[in-house]
Amino acid sequence: MKTDRRSATDTTSSPFGASAAAPAALERAKAVSRRSFLTYAGLGAAGLAGVSAIAACSSDSSSSASGATTSGATASYGDISLQLSWIKNIEFSGEFMADSKGYYTKAGFNKVTLVTGPVDSADALVAAGTVTVGLSAPDATARVITEQGAPLKIIGSTYQKNPFCVLSLEEGKPIRTPADLKGKTIGVQTGTNQTIFAGFLKANNIDPKDLKQVATGYEPTDLTAKKIDGYIAYLTNEPILVKGEGFTPVTLSFADNGLPLTAETFTVTDDTLKNKRDMLKAFLKAEIQGWNDAIADGGPAASAELAVNTYGKDKGLKVDEQTLEATEQVKLISTADTKANGIFTLTDDLQANIIKALGVIGITIKGSDLFDLTLLDEVYKENPDLKKG
């Protein structure tokens, strides 16, 4: 099924017609460059009635985590599935660690299937019962709840900060502050990125008429070709790619400038939350163990080897690039709050700021209708040694 973002194997040029002689690293970016951080794509029109079609599209790209076996382990929760928001790359290093080190098996699962993305909406697949847990984002989940009445909750968040940014070049017209956007030409990917960028402008009291927005693709060739001044990117991806081509990246973080949304949130149905709490707690414990390993000293390098040589071995990934991206994403996962409370947790203040940010982009929802962090509270109370974040 066609989505609003470039698929992992699509090498179509951007609307500006990127040169076929693009540098090697940027050619690789066509395969691994991150898509819109929003996983919600046009469900307002399609509705949950289209979930079966979405599921049919995603099923072709599903694959199962092998799960290291543990002698004597008794599986009590059977098989579950986790919908990833993108292709199997370093972004899911915690899941790769949890699987390869047998944490899922020790937690009582026969198998945790890591369903590869991208998909139109992980939230819709969760609501339909196609997958057990989905990796999404607060804005995506909130839209499905408010527009479709889907009974969903966010039970944790891998990223404490969303990685969205405006990427510019020191060699061009660097954009260091929101005010620097005025008079610039910004490349924005068609679809949900336009919505989130509009929210970013609104949060910073910038009139869209004060800058020029043009359609661009999901690789930064238009930026490096100096056809645009700024490019909507992921802090953990495209800045590393352009630096590898000899440019000096300048980034303007959305999370640090008025739009403090998180990302890679765990979404489940209210029914699962109510009736399968022990299963979800076991899953979260295994996830925490995997991510603690992924962000520990040596974790990024070990995770990169797993992403390149095992889980994403058919994606054309490079160990050096994946290691750099893994190192950068630690900054988005590990904060003073997670070191005190444990990874995946969201403080009351952060939850309140997310709700305010959602209001800026036109989504009105109560925190109690979007978040339920009680499972994490119980996991950390029962396993205080897991608080390493």
Rank of each mutant, 00 (worst) to 15 (best):
L26Y: 09
E305W: 06
N353H: 04
G342S: 12
G172I: 10
T251G: 11
S66D: 09
D337K: 15
P138T: 03
S63F: 13
G156W: 15
V308Y: 08
L252K: 10
P384E: 09
D297C: 03
G199W: 00
T323H: 02
F254E: 04
S71M: 05
R176N: 05
A68Q: 15
L48S: 02
T327V: 00
N292M: 10
G246L: 02
N193L: 11
P208T: 07
D120S: 10
G362Q: 07
Q148D: 14
D210T: 14
Q160D: 12
A20S: 13
G316V: 09
G312F: 06
K331N: 08
T132L: 01
F109K: 14
N162K: 08
T146Q: 02
E170P: 01
T335C: 10
W86Y: 14
Y77L: 11
K212I: 09
D60Q: 05
T345Y: 12
K243M: 00
S85L: 08
V360E: 05
G217P: 12
E325Y: 07
A46W: 04
I354Q: 05
T39L: 00
A20G: 15
C57P: 03
K366Q: 10
E245S: 10
G44V: 01
I288V: 05
Y103W: 11
K366F: 01
L38T: 02
G149Q: 09
T195S: 07
C165L: 09
N193M: 13
L252D: 01
P220I: 10
S334R: 11
A53P: 02
P163F: 08
G187E: 11
G246N: 11
F92N: 13
T69L: 11
K153T: 07
G102T: 11
S168I: 10
K281E: 06
A124P: 03
D385P: 15
D180C: 10
P384D: 07
L84F: 02
K388V: 09
G312I: 04
I90S: 05
A203L: 02
S59G: 07
E287T: 06
S62V: 05
E91W: 12
E382C: 06
P174T: 00
G42E: 04
T12S: 12
K281L: 05
I206Q: 09
G199P: 01
V144E: 02
I155A: 04
K339A: 05
F200K: 07
D314Y: 08
G367S: 08
D377Y: 15
T192E: 05
F266I: 06
V379W: 15
C165K: 15
E27H: 01
G299Y: 04
G183C: 08
S58N: 06
G134S: 00
D314F: 06
E170D: 09
F197N: 09
Y311Q: 10
L273I: 00
A25D: 08
K243V: 02
K111Q: 10
V188W: 09
K315W: 14
V144N: 13
L273R: 03
L82C: 03
N204K: 11
W86I: 00
T11Q: 11
P23R: 07
A124D: 14
V242I: 03
T248G: 02
S66N: 14
R28K: 15
T130S: 03
I333E: 06
N204A: 05
L48E: 08
L373H: 12
I186R: 07
A307S: 10
L125E: 04
V131R: 04
A122T: 05
T9M: 12
F254N: 04
S136V: 03
V360P: 06
N341G: 08
S13K: 07
